[in-house]
């Protein structure tokens, strides 16, 4: 069987591309390929990841300018074919800005960049990305962002809730999803969502920064190992 291909899209200003590469290589044993943002034709791929960072300096709004790069058209094209797409941090912002995911990510409620470890509650463990998690499993991952405050209008919130598109929520060690454990002001503590078809996922926390014994937790390993069946 032909070896499956994982792709990482790099924009000018992306800065977690290397970390993501290392994590995928370590957890899945395959080397991803990099796609430069102005690539207008991707021949084939079996999974696309959009890394964190500050694409185009996050100027205008985080992720906006990146959506005008040719590679995003390709991301959209593959997403329609059902290819799994994962956006982490800035990648999540790009996916909302280009319309593959609903809602928007605005400035943290206290206006400050925030780098810390958070707990996430797995809300939907039935997706292709999360099926190895237990229902309501608590995992812990680092966040590092200033625009991670997830916003969505209440009507649409209801829709994505009803359709089980909310994947992760910020929580306490024991799974309490309350304002106290909301690091950035996100609606209903939302940390990660998927599209309707559940082949596109975006999350603010960084699983690629929780894969080594010396990291502050290793729950990122499981996140990536979950992807094994997809490739």
């Amino acid at each position: 069987m032909k070896e499956k291909k994982i792709s990482i899209v790099i924009f000018p200003g992306s800065n977690c591309d290397r970390d993501l590469f290392v994590a995928l290589e370590k957890c899945l044993g395959t080397k991803p390929e990099f796609i430069w943002h102005n690539c207008s034709h991707v021949k084939s791929t079996d999974m696309i990841l959009i890394p964190g960072g500050f694409s185009f300096g996050d100027y205008l709004r985080a992720g906006t300018i990146a959506t005008k790069s040719p590679a995003i058209k390709e991301v959209i094209r593959f997403s329609k074919r059902g290819v799994p797409i994962i956006g982490i941090c800035n990648g999540f912002q790009i996916l909302t800005e280009c319309g593959l995911l609903e809602g928007a990510l605005i400035k943290n409620s206290n206006q400050l960049f925030k780098c810390e470890k958070v707990n996430l509650k797995v809300i939907n463990n039935k997706t292709i990305f999360t099926k190895n998690y237990k229902s309501s499993e608590i995992i812990s991952l680092p966040i590092a962002h200033s625009q991670g405050n997830y916003f969505i209008e209440s009507d649409n919130l209801k829709k994505i809730e009803d359709n089980d598109q909310i994947i992760f929520k910020y929580s306490s060690d024991f799974g309490d999803v309350t304002e106290k454990y909301n690091p950035n002001g996100s609606v209903n503590n939302i940390a990660g969502i998927s599209n309707k078809k559940k082949n596109v996922i975006g999350l603010m926390p960084h699983p690629e920064r929780a894969i080594e014994n010396f990291h502050n937790g290793i729950d990122g390993i499981k996140f990536f190992k979950n992807l094994k069946d997809l490739i």
Partner: peptide, 8 residues
Amino acid sequence: DLLANPII
């Protein structure tokens, strides 16, 4: 398409 995000 660029300057404003119609969601917000």
